[in-house]
Amino acid sequence: MRFEPDPVMLGHNQFIGVSHLSQDAGRTREERFSDVARAGEVIAYSVSQGVRGMMLSTHPRARDILDYLKAEGLALEMNMYPLIPYAQGYVRRMNAVGLTGMVREILGQASLKTKADIALYGSLGYLKRDLRRLLGAFVDIEMLLFKDFNVKAVFLHDAFVDLSLALGAGEEVLSFSDHVRRRYGAEPGFVTMNFPLLVRSFREWGIERPLVMTTFNSAGFQMNPSREACERALEEGDASVVAMSTLAAGYLRPAEAYDYVYSLPKIDSVVVGVSTVEHTAETFSIIRERREGAARAG
């Protein structure tokens, strides 16, 4: 059966202090959303506008957001799309305590809190012998946060996808795919900044119609190796595509941005980062209009 992502997903970057426009902007957002109710207000309004999908990484603030959704009775109205692992957190810990220190810390943490929930496949010594099981255990640890939610798909972070693509690590990608399907009954998804390379590699690895979140914007920002190559891969490839960075990280105005996105063929969904109710209303009204226009045009 064809997997169909929600046509619009709420992004999470703005809620966790991330801005790809500038770190200054990120810090402003970090302050604004330190009160989780502010994020909750934007999410609740989006749900009232018919948005059902939400991306969320396992940033420390994710737990607060998820708790809020539960408390407000929004949890079951939404489809969650976890983005794992929380790569930047790992990089910082790795810089602070080293690679093995980080692995030990993560596994140690999980086994203390949630031994029963996770099949840790035995001791660290055993894990050391098997990279794929280690990756599976990492996925399970990150997924604990989402256990009371509807998880429609699980996205692997671009840091890992792009590394796997460059290394040609097909087996690892397949093992993530199997694990997500088997253990969570969810669709495996892949975030990438190298869309044409992904289409080519996945075809070689025998992965059919993958769910891919990747950059599409009229500025060509982060579209590697070129905007044209990405558009061609979209046309010729057989992927279910969720467009991200559609505003090129806040650089484009929504009207011109969505004119471009909905002029493309085969975009199944867009992920949208909105920070205020006013901004949400404006953005979703433009998206609705452009989507309907694209649907009419066939």
């Binding site: 840091a159 792009d162 500025a219 920002f221 190796p225 090129a248």
Partner: peptide, 17 residues
């Protein structure tokens, strides 16, 4: 000028152009 204005794509992106 934002990095978006100056952006040049790369043949493969791994962690930073």
């Amino acid at each position: 000028l934002y990095k978006q204005d100056l952006f040049e794509p790369v043949e493969v992106y791994v962690g930073g152009a």
